[in-house]
Design a protein around this nucleic acid. Structure first.
Lengths: 330, 330
DNA sequence: CTGAAAGCGCTTACAG
DNA sequence: CTGAAAGCGCTTACAG
């Protein structure tokens, strides 16, 4: 072993963990040996001795969704900086899979878990905290759980979207979004109502709310086509639940013979990478996806490295409007 | 500890790992104690002793790319099935980050590594195999490395794209793609030449090859705009390096006042999810991304669980053509 | 079938 | 400043 450097194994350990206590000469020699032998400390042994891994678990409902992909990137980068590594768990919005993953993560002695629970909050999460594993909720309010959380101000996002359209002269606006029992959806609608309440009564726009079963392009396209077939184009703008929904809506509107943004303005949500590159560059409400993940990782890491000094906190980011070509003044 | 069951700690271990060698009576007693004390074996100690984790490392250049996202899903699912968990490493195409991650992975004693090296093949990879860690290359031929690999038949993909356009009457085709030193690019062009060689000489289409520095929409859009400004629309169809490139090309062609597919047919590559939902649904060459990841994971797992029975193998998938609205007959 | 013991590779007081 | 030694929690021959 690295004792070929002529020192004891304890000194090698100190060279790695507390280099300042070594004689400079010795340190140099040890480091040379480490390099030459390409010595990499065994994490299992370190963990066994120190009692702590440097592994985080990230549990998300759908890694195919660009939102979570960017978020995962943020988590990874923050983790790497702190010397942590992250195990990715994709639940496909399946609660059983989610529970299974949480058990596995606990068995691996992960130091902390970052999770966006698929449905409501998961009971198993309470046990996690009890076990001394850090926990922070991502993009979900921490209902009834004493943990950290990071989220985005959805009410403000809804307000931004509505104000943008109002300022451009739109008075008949469709809101194409998911079921109202989804926290995000409810919050955004609250923000829209807030925006409307600030407008003089006589000038307030009409809102046509159209729910879609899933937040996908296909689902949106179908619902939009049906709406137009039944009631015609009884709106001049659409606020969509996310960018994919916006793309689906645009497809349906075009298929009915109308143009974007000439006949209808469309605004998306999330500002996924593709929004800027879509054939009609999409106006959207941007969410700091990467930062959300980055902050969440910093939060758990701080929690597990200073459990006594740590106070649970909720970090809320602000969304902002990105204007592109899919909305125009009328 | 669980010796409250009145047995030695070695017996507890055997109860967990080799229950069949215990006296039924003892086993029962131990299990009861395990349940009551909610005993969960320490994975670090197990690993330290047995030398084997159930962790895989997945190293990709860019998890934001839908191609790798889908691939990661396949890896995750196959891993979960075999009781493995996967650490996700995103290198941003940075070789240093890649090396760093490989070291970390080695330190975590991962059982196997799945990697799409950012540039050529990484030297550090040789050491990985020496260390007894399973290794399989993903979407990269295993040049000079004695490992398993999974890939897609790129030559066939190029052939499919060209044949499709030829059959639809196109005789002036632009090939908008990356540098020829990228293995995938070279292979696809080889496939295109093969397709052309099968066509009667008099009827062979002309190919205009236009290289782009990066395989992104912006890069493609810029190059396409310049081309049209300089030489006009001297082609009736474009074969693109990937779907994002196709979107960029479409944007530029439209900006120049032409329509898709009326004036120009465009074919993408990868068939990312969004291709079907684009405003002009994109004809594309589909690659089995999920299956690629799934197969790769199965390969490493088989390698590390049966090192002696294992023979390195190369699995090659076939791409196929998905016809949508961005290409038409002339 | 069960227990005692060695040892996996580290970290960390504690002498010297 | 450095080395010798104990011990983290397991697994696994090896006696008995």
């Amino acid at each position: 072993m690295a004792e070929k450097a002529g020192v004891s194994l304890g000194t090698v350990s100190n060279a790695i963990n507390r280099p300042e206590i070594l004689a400079p000469e010795t340190l140099k020699r040890v480091r040379k040996a480490i390099d030459e032998l390409k010595f990499i400390p065994n994490a299992s042994a370190q963990t066994l001795r120190a009692g702590k891994t440097r592994i985080l678990g990230l549990v998300v409902p759908d890694i195919s969704n660009p939102f979570f992909t960017d978020l995962a990137k943020g988590v990874n980068d923050a983790a790497l900086l702190a010397g942590y590594v992250v195990i990715l768990c994709n639940t496909d919005e399946d609660s059983e899979k989610e529970d299974h993953y949480i058990d596995i993560l606990a068995g691996q002695n992960v130091r902390g878990i970052l999770i966006t629970p698929a449905h409501e909050t998961n009971k198993r999460l309470n046990e996690i905290s009890k076990r001394g594993i850090g926990l922070t909720l991502v993009d979900r309010p921490s209902i009834g759980l004493d943990t950290c959380s990071v989220e985005v101000n959805d009410a403000h996002g809804g307000l931004l979207a509505l104000e943008h359209l109002y300022e451009r002269g739109h008075r008949k606006i469709m809101c194409l979004t998911g079921e109202s029992d989804i926290p995000q959806v409810a919050e955004r609608e609250r923000g829209m109502r807030e925006a409307i309440s600030r407008i003089p009564k006589a000038d307030r726009p009409t809102i046509i709310t159209q729910r879609i079963p899933m937040m996908t392009a296909d689902s949106a396209s179908t619902v939009m086509s049906e709406h137009i077939a039944e009631k015609g184009l009884n709106f001049t703008a659409v606020i969509c639940g996310n960018d994919l929904v916006a793309f689906g809506a645009i497809r349906a509107i075009r298929a009915a013979g109308y143009s974007i943004p000439e006949d209808v303005s469309v605004i998306g949500y999330d500002d996924i990478d593709f929004a800027a590159n879509a054939t009609v560059p999409l106006t959207s409400i941007a969410q700091p996806k990467y930062q959300l993940g980055y902050a969440a990782a910093e939060l758990v890491i701080s929690e597990c490295e200073n459990p006594e000094k740590h106070a649970h906190q909720k970090i809320q980011f602000q969304p902002h409007l990105i204007v592109r070509n899919s909305t125009r003044s009328i």
